[in-house]
């Protein structure tokens, strides 16, 4: 998400706000186009799978959502590390703006995983290693958001939630491998989501397109939400006034 712009120049919320305002629509429309293309590929073009019939088409939602749920937490942890080391408010705001989207993708990944599990294993919840660690990831997201709004002082909220996100990020691999160990110990190597059907090139293409759609969507939503967060937290400062003046001038 950190594109090539020299984000030090945009480190202050004041100068980043107009950039976020301009970029958000572009990412949103890119996301929409890619999603349409991805759905078309996934639902119409991709051939029926030999073993799972049509049920496997759920992977075009499930896998991108699972990827994004993990990726967004890591990007969040990255922004939290930046906000702690460079003490910049904007980095913390970026992390704050990503959390709800990450939680949404985690929920979607869990939901679609369950719906995919029913036809393949016969139960909605089979304590599969990846799904269980996805569930714990959802708790990590809720923990981050709950800590954030349990603290009134925005400064402390930024820094405390940053520490939590970093501790969480360090624990994600540990949780994943311990759940994987636990799962194989108890169930043996049962069919798990990783044994997805042999990926015809078309299926892979569909999934990658949907993944990019999800990524651009996450950026667009984060840029929108960060504008709201900046306004909420910076409304007392003078620059909002100047910005309005410039907007009036530009109109």
């Amino acid at each position: 998400m950190t594109t090539s712009i020299n984000w030090f120049r945009f480190a202050s919320p004041a100068s980043f706000f107009p950039l976020a305002r301009r970029l958000a629509p572009w990412f949103a429309s890119a996301a929409a186009l890619l999603a349409l293309l991805g759905c078309y590929l996934g639902l119409f073009v991709a051939p029926t799978d030999a073993q799972q019939g049509e049920a496997y088409r759920i992977i075009f939602i499930h896998v991108p959502a699972a990827w994004m749920s993990m990726f967004i937490y890591l990007v969040m942890a990255f922004w939290c590390a930046i906000s702690l080391t460079f003490n910049t408010r904007l980095a913390a705001m970026m992390a704050q703006s990503l959390a709800p989207t990450g939680a949404m993708f985690t929920f979607v990944a869990l939901w679609t995983g369950a719906l995919w599990g029913k036809p393949t294993w016969g139960t909605y919840w089979a304590w599969d290693a990846r799904m269980t660690s996805e569930l714990i990831l959802l708790f990590l997201y809720f923990g981050y958001m709950a800590l954030r709004n349990a603290i009134d002082d925005p400064r402390r909220a930024d820094r405390a939630s940053a520490v939590l996100a970093l501790v969480g990020a360090i624990n994600i691999p540990i949780i994943y491998f311990s759940v994987k160990w636990w799962n194989t110990l108890h169930q043996g190597a049962s069919v798990s989501l990783t044994a997805a059907p042999t990926m015809a090139k078309l299926m892979l293409a569909g999934m990658l397109v949907m993944a990019f759609a999800a990524w651009f969507y996450a950026i667009a939503i984060a840029l929108l939400r960060v504008q709201a967060i900046i306004l909420e937290r910076e409304c007392a400062t003078a620059w909002v006034g100047e910005l309005a003046a410039s907007v009036r001038g530009a109109k």
Binding site: I136, F139, L140, G143, N171, I175, S178
Partner: peptide
């Protein structure tokens, strides 16, 4: 509990 129990899982 919400913050810590996920870390207790392993």
């Amino acid at each position: 509990a919400l913050l810590i129990l996920p870390l207790y899982a392993p």
